[in-house]
Structures are given as structure tokens and as C-alpha cells.
């Protein structure tokens, strides 16, 4: 039987992390499925585990002038209910799983899982989200895009814990997340898309495009976005074929039991088209 650590506060938690090799569990909804054993048996974790869901220090949400700070153990539902969470994030969360899962699952859990189909990641990449990561001796801040290295690969040291998700406060003319699932709710994405832009004097001042589940991790290319800045909407609409050709090589999805790569690729490009066509 594996050991389960139940720290009372963050200090104790960081101490355990410093001393033991453990798997961190927040809401546990996904970890439990990944480690499912049999009905009536304990969850089949392969390593000792550390539960952080009871740490009140990780359950707050607050803001300053520039950022919104979301505690790692705050449930998705609580984020949706909050007045200060970014609208795009709330809309994304509404597309994730079901009410029951949203009541326990966390944003940090979705990040720590680093699944290519993790819905929240797409919008978080789009907003340049950062993470606060703590260990007993250190606190660091890292961009989400630098934290996730591949399918279920993250750069978290064994003594470290994600403590906050930090999202810049941004102004967009329009921002949305579109999930393409096998049904209209409660499902894992076949692919997903997020797009946002800002406009001033009829010229694009900020434009962001991200795709989920079409590569090992979220696809977002800042250099390509830069090339669109300064253009008028009409100019962008006029160069739509060029735009899709830019993104084409970045979209390299796979075949699996939920869909196939031809569909994922075609629809990813379609969603980019839809986004550009609907710029106003």
C-alpha cells in the first residue's frame, strides 16, 4: 500500500515535498482515473501521494493591477463563480467535463497533467499565463509555455509545488474558446481553438491564436502573431490562405479512438478561418 500524506498547511506540505518522493494530488479526478484499480480497492497509485486539496492557502483568488492570481487547489467551479477570473477562462471552464467534476477538479491539476487535450491550457497559453512554483527554499515564476515540455511532461522538480496560476489582465475586442468534442458536453476534446484580438484605429494591435490537441502541447506561435499586428482587418481577411499556410506545419495531430488526424487538421484550419472571417 502506498503512503498518503495529508499536510495541514503549506509549510508542512513543502516540507514533505522536500523529504519524500511523492505524486501530488489536488482534486484527484484525473489522477484517480489514470490509476484506477478495481471497485472496492484503494486507488492504484504507483507512488506515495501528497494531497493538497485541504490547504486553504491554495484556495484563494485575488488580483492586483496587472494580474489575477488563482490558488492551485481552487476548484474550477469556484473560478467560474469568481468576479475577477478572466471571462475567457470562465467560458473555457464551462466547456470542461461536468458540474460534478468542476466542483473538485482544479486548474493546477489540469496543468500538472499536461494532457494535449487539456482544455484550460489552450486559453491559458493564449493569455500568457504564468505559474508560481514553490519549494521549501525557493519561490519561482515561470511561463506556462515553458513549464510544459510535452505530452504529460512538465518541468517540476520533485520538491516543488504549483501554488498559483497567474494570469495577466488583458483587454480584447473579442476572445473566445471553441471546443470540438465528440458531443456537446462532458467529453474529452478532439481538438480546440482559442482566438483573441485587440484593435485600435482599425489596426490590429494584439492578436492571439492557440490550438489544443493538434500537437504534443498547445500550439501558439508568437512570431506569426507579430506578423499580423499592424494589419487592418480587411488586410488579414485578404491573406487568409497565407495565414492558414503559416499554421499548417504546426498542426500535426494524431489518429486515436476519438477522431483522426485528417479531421483534426482540417477543422483546426477551419476554426482559424472562422476566427479571421469573423473579425470585426
Amino acid at each position: 500500500m502506498v503512503e498518503a500524506y495529508l499536510p495541514k498547511d503549506l509549510d508542512e506540505c513543502l516540507k514533505i515535498l522536500n523529504e519524500k518522493k511523492v505524486k501530488i494530488i489536488a482534486g484527484g479526478t484525473d489522477m484517480l482515473i489514470q490509476n484506477r484499480s478495481h471497485t472496492g480497492m484503494s486507488i492504484g497509485y504507483r507512488n506515495d501521494v501528497l494531497y493538497i486539496n485541504n490547504l486553504n492557502e491554495l484556495k484563494n483568488i485575488y488580483e492586483d493591477d496587472a494580474f489575477v492570481y488563482i490558488g492551485a487547489a481552487l476548484s474550477l467551479e469556484k473560478i467560474m463563480e469568481s468576479d475577477i477570473a478572466p471571462k475567457l477562462l470562465k467560458e473555457t471552464i464551462l466547456e470542461m467535463a461536468s458540474p460534478a467534476i468542476r466542483h473538485t477538479a482544479t486548474l493546477a491539476g489540469n496543468i500538472g497533467n499536461a494532457s494535449p487535450a487539456g482544455d484550460s491550457l489552450v486559453s491559458l497559453y493564449l493569455m500568457d499565463a504564468e505559474l508560481e512554483i514553490r519549494s521549501i527554499n525557493n519561490t519561482r515564476r515561470v511561463f506556462l509555455k515553458d513549464f510544459i515540455k510535452g505530452v504529460r511532461k512538465i518541468t517540476l522538480e520533485s520538491d516543488e509545488l504549483i501554488t498559483k496560476v497567474i494570469i495577466p489582465k488583458l483587454m480584447f475586442e473579442k476572445a473566445y474558446f471553441k471546443k470540438v468534442g465528440p458531443r456537446l458536453s462532458d467529453a474529452i476534446s478532439k481538438l480546440s481553438f482559442a482566438g483573441a484580438y485587440q484593435i485600435y484605429n482599425n489596426k490590429i494591435t494584439d492578436i492571439r491564436i492557440a490550438f489544443g490537441a493538434v500537437n504534443v502541447t498547445v500550439v501558439r506561435d508568437r512570431l506569426l502573431e507579430k506578423k499580423m499586428i499592424g494589419k487592418t482587418i480587411e488586410e488579414l481577411k485578404g491573406m487568409i490562405d497565407l495565414l492558414t499556410s503559416w499554421y499548417d506545419p504546426l498542426i500535426v495531430p494524431i489518429d486515436d479512438q476519438r477522431s483522426n488526424k485528417v479531421y483534426r487538421k482540417e477543422v483546426a484550419i477551419n476554426l482559424l478561418r472562422e476566427f479571421i472571417e469573423n473579425l470585426i
Binding site: A4, L6, I25, G27, G28, T29, L32, I33, I43, Y51, N53, N54, E77, A97, S98, P99, A100, I101, H103, T104, D186
Partner: peptide, 24 residues
């Protein structure tokens, strides 16, 4: 956590008891 047949209320809100470790 797909079907919800195991649902219970935790602090007045629905959760899936099949996906909830006792620790939580």
C-alpha cells in the same frame, strides 16, 4: 466520473464519489 451514478453532495454541491479520494 463520466456517468454520475455515484453522485453525492459535498458541501451542498454535486461531486462524483467514484473520483473522490477519501483524503479530499
Amino acid at each position: 466520473g463520466e456517468c454520475g451514478a455515484c453522485a453525492v453532495l459535498m458541501d451542498q454541491k454535486i461531486i462524483n464519489s467514484c473520483c473522490t479520494p477519501l483524503a479530499n
